[in-house]
Design a protein around this nucleic acid. Sequence first.
DNA 1: AAAAAACCTGACCAAATGGTCAAATCGAGC
DNA 2: GCTCGATTTGACCATTTGGTCAGGTTTTTT
Lengths: 234, 234
Amino acid sequence: MSGTERTQDRTQKSAIRAENERVILKAAEEVFAESGFRGATTGMIADRAGIPKANLHYYFPTKEALYRRVVEHIFNIWLEAANSFDESDDPVEALTAYISKKMDVSRAHPMGSKVWANEILHKAPVIQDYLETTLTEWTASRVSAIQRWIASGRIAPVDPHYLLYMIWATTQHYADFNHQIDTLNGGVPLSDAQFEEAKRTVTGIILAGIGAVPPAGLAAGDRPRDAGARNGAT
Amino acid sequence: MSGTERTQDRTQKSAIRAENERVILKAAEEVFAESGFRGATTGMIADRAGIPKANLHYYFPTKEALYRRVVEHIFNIWLEAANSFDESDDPVEALTAYISKKMDVSRAHPMGSKVWANEILHKAPVIQDYLETTLTEWTASRVSAIQRWIASGRIAPVDPHYLLYMIWATTQHYADFNHQIDTLNGGVPLSDAQFEEAKRTVTGIILAGIGAVPPAGLAAGDRPRDAGARNGAT
DNA sequence: AAAAAACCTGACCAAATGGTCAAATCGAGC
DNA sequence: GCTCGATTTGACCATTTGGTCAGGTTTTTT
């Protein structure tokens, strides 16, 4: 890794290319999320990016190469969120941070989550190697961490895999199924306040579910406050 | 090759039609689940059904008509599982039955669940009306039921919507993301025993998470009445 | 058994789509 | 302003795909 760095990388050539690739990748992520790999057409992506189709193929020779780049981008975001798992050795802190981060990703990058979901749904034709390497290793490591929590009695004895699946499923649901959620919310997306409430509910149920914290204000001597009449009971 | 051996056994009216539609719908569910609506081709479906493409179009004029029939079938299965929510007025019994049934559906009809997921992912182009009518009504009704549980102090005060989303997400995850789960399970599907363990874990975390039962056998100091003698960790 | 209805299918077509290409244009160093 | 590589794009092509059709075969009805 000496010497032969290409000395012209910093010319405008790279600038034009970088900007165009950015625009194309953004459009591609949206179109792939909405339509899936086969459902998406290079024409649709080019239109959304505001360039002719031939120009898109100048930067990304094939549809599959473009798709692979999009998926890699998603996976990096996923990995970044995954790191928040390690913020603490305490189960409450670690899981709270992890769930919160994953919920944030679902809200900030719903398209990316959908592309990922589509990939898994279709048996991961392009990311199978990621699943078998990076994801498998990450999972094994965190399974061990969770098992230590169990061994030290800080959480209830549950199979760590199914706990992780539950966290993944629930948090990603807010991205992948946001259309269904919106419909059940009267056709409008969840407000920031609603989303925060969802985040608290998810975190609370999981932490209480594994005995890391007591359930949210349940009646012991304390009467649970009225949860608020958001639904006109008729 | 003048083999017209087939003797007309009995006078079956539209038995031929019924049987052929059954075979086609089964093939269609698989192909749509694997490839999505646009990814699936009528040729693929016809091949899997073992008939010429033209014959498929004799029974289902358009690809979209066929797809709609498949989705309707899925929705009926979903509704059937939904009924198990009403088996009891007790939150523990009702939720246990509902979660168990939804997990069973995920295992028995993974293709159907994937078709449904694909639909929502792509903004429900053909089932939006179901979402807005049947699903909305079902949800509102069960939200009320859950609110009654909260009011009577039988479960912790959580927004029922997010509890339902959590149940849907977690149970359907075992169908929609089964490829990822299989990969993390060493490349082989979950055994029946593993799946039962997953079911118990999911049920246990949710019920404990809302304070309906104590967490599964936690460490010494705090020993609530055992919620189930089936947990083999001691 | 003859007519009618239902069923089957090879051949075909128009539209859509991924990708190519040659010619035109642009940008920066000389 | 000339050169050369990078960029842009309209036109074009081969393949795929949803759907049709005419004619044949089987089943049901009269």
